[in-house]
Design a protein around this nucleic acid. Structure first.
Lengths: 203, 203
DNA sequence: GTCTATAGCCAGATAGAC
DNA sequence: GTCTATCTGGCTATAGAC
């Protein structure tokens, strides 16, 4: 039974809304723009989702639940710590190419509305990093890597992977390089970042 | 001749606008809110700055020119590479405490309007990283640090320092910790980050 | 379910008194 | 230079025809 690609009006709207909200954010997005993107009338947005706020929440949840399993899979498989770091970095790049606006969208909207995190945490597929933390501690005990708080290592991995994408215009400016050259740097990072981290963890 | 703290209406407006625009962004900010913050009437905003767009641009330039010399100072002094990395990390924390919304404001508004970077680059005080890049290359040649592209190291330093502040709600959620505990992690990073980087650079 | 038309509100901007 | 009052346009949301 193939999961057919849903082309109903409702999912058509949701997809259009994802595109626009991710690009413009809640405040910058216009219902008219979403209707245009979906190729339907503005009134239909309200017919299916009642209000801009509710449509936005549907988008946010949908987008977040795209990210969460991805992260869970990366953290909770049976790979060694080193392989996880390597694979995370490599996989992140291909994920971001498909969803370039996703990280800054999530981060910005959570900054606008930090209480929302509490609601997300309770959900079934919210990322769980306990196994990953334990794995780090085991590697430290066995003397395989240098001593570091698992939380700090986790933050470092996220930072090194995500930041270059969300801050690209600023970094392009600082480095004074073209879009093309910047993209080359990003591609190099697929291996550069994991090398950097693994070197930093040497005893 | 003490530079008197300017309390004219014009600078009063600019300060209020900085506060509101940094918190809410261009799209989320309201002129009424800025007027309230400044304790004056909405019409006065237009008297001094003509339009929301022009007020925003004044704010952006002012905020950016707060960041730029800070970065220049950190990159272009005569410290050794290792000292620069240590000091950058340490100083960044105290800077961010004074201006918590600044990095995400700059990054977001540049994402909204990437062409704006070109205008900034031409300005006199735009950060210049050439000296820093040369210093990295010298250290590599002398065998003091492992081989790495200066651009990649620069990105890594920025990422490790800035990201934990702009993504704090998301990271708090992933780590499932309280604001208080997260702030402790951030404080630890004043030394944690430079240790991590310096270890990563060992030959 | 989908459209057109429009209500109702709110934000940015201006006019004009003081 | 600062205020009150108001215009104007745009946006969310709804009413109602088909």
């Amino acid at each position: 039974m193939k999961k057919t690609k849903d082309d109903s009006t409702e999912s058509n709207i949701l997809n259009a809304a994802k595109t626009i909200f991710q690009r413009k954010g809640m405040d910058g997005a216009r219902m008219q723009e979403i209707a245009d993107e979906a190729g339907i009338n503005k009134a239909l947005l309200h017919y299916y989702y009642r209000s801009k706020q509710l449509l936005f929440e549907a988008v946010f949840k949908s987008v977040f639940s795209l990210l969460a399993p991805q992260l869970n899979k990366a953290l909770n498989n049976d790979d060694s710590l080193m392989d996880k770091i390597k694979n995370f970095t490599k996989n992140y790049i291909s994920f971001i190419i498909k969803h370039p606006y996703l990280p800054s969208f999530i981060i910005n909207e959570l900054n606008r509305n930090p209480e929302f995190v509490q609601k997300l945490i309770t959900e079934k597929h919210f990322p769980n990093i306990e196994k990953f933390k334990n794995q780090i501690n085991e590697n430290i005990e066995k003397g395989k890597i240098t001593s570091i708080k698992p939380e700090q290592l986790f933050i470092n991995i996220m930072a090194l992977n995500i930041f270059p994408f969300i801050a690209s215009p600023l970094l392009k400016g600082f480095l004074k390089i073209s879009d093309e050259d910047y993209n080359k740097l990003l591609e190099e990072r697929a291996t550069e970042v994991s090398n950097f981290i693994i070197n930093a963890l040497k005893v």
